[in-house]
Design a binder for these strands. Sequence first.
DNA 1: CTCATATTTTATAATAATTATAATTTTACA
DNA 2: TGTAAAATTATAATTATTATAAAATATGAG
Lengths: 147, 147
Amino acid sequence: MKDTVNQLKEYLIKHDIKPSTIRLKILEYLLNNPIHPTADDIYKSLLDQMPTLSKTSIYNTMDLFAGKGVVKVISLDEKEARYDINTCLHGHFKCHVCERIYDFPISCDIQTPQELEGFAINDIDINFYGICQNCKNKERRIWKWNG
Amino acid sequence: MKDTVNQLKEYLIKHDIKPSTIRLKILEYLLNNPIHPTADDIYKSLLDQMPTLSKTSIYNTMDLFAGKGVVKVISLDEKEARYDINTCLHGHFKCHVCERIYDFPISCDIQTPQELEGFAINDIDINFYGICQNCKNKERRIWKWNG
DNA sequence: CTCATATTTTATAATAATTATAATTTTACA
DNA sequence: TGTAAAATTATAATTATTATAAAATATGAG
Ligand SMILES: [Mn+2]
Ligand SMILES: [Mn+2]
Ligand SMILES: [Zn+2]
Ligand SMILES: [Zn+2]
């Protein structure tokens, strides 16, 4: 337990972030819940541990984390921003039935399109939308039930 | 002129949309300005032609167009939605200096990652972010000036 | 054409995520 | 311990979008 906290502290320090209680709690949450949470998800989940927590602190912390490269902000089809503790290049699939967001590896190392020759590419977002296998199976079951 | 309007009308009808004045004007604007405009861009551009135009009409029309497949809503790094009259699969590059959004073709026909085997993929967004060639050249010129 | 009805457009208010500002609390450390 | 800096919070403001209902326009039978 103590060890974990120290690891988290080191992790933040390595990223040039002073480790405060809130920052550690948020980092811990993000590592334990790699579900691409929204600011509100994080807020709600930490509220019982830290009853004085404010939404502004979540936003502040996430901005800080994003700026220091601890999280990547992912902007999908929706109006709320989501935060990904996994900052390595990978794709996202959002199921529009269960709203879950799946990771998938980007297989073929993206080659720069000729059209973007001479452009500096700093960031890549690859987002797929559809229905995940779980939800497809459920739908099929409902089909069967209905005849 | 008359011809063009008729073509636009046919285009809407083909997409199961009753052609009203506003809808035709918006469609015309989108075809003549394939710059991925925001609702506000469209509104401001049409306001002098149609002084009674309301922002709500833009949103209504764009929702209708999106539902009928006339435009694709593209959600980038920003809070405003943008609309693309080109609904074929292609990638977007946003320059964070000039804010311009460039199209580029998706070269290698995206193969479904094994991880998404059994998933139904309905939509794909591929967004690159960085600095476009224009802006890079400008920056270099400023460098030179400053010594 | 004329009236009734459906559709479209508009004005207005509501919602909701995010940001701005300033006050309060906590931390660092002389 | 006292003071300044940093972090956190409360509160208000902003802004894109949606909801609602009123007004304008189009449609179509009689
Ligand atoms: Mn991810
Ligand atoms: Mn495009
Ligand atoms: Zn699902
Ligand atoms: Zn540029």
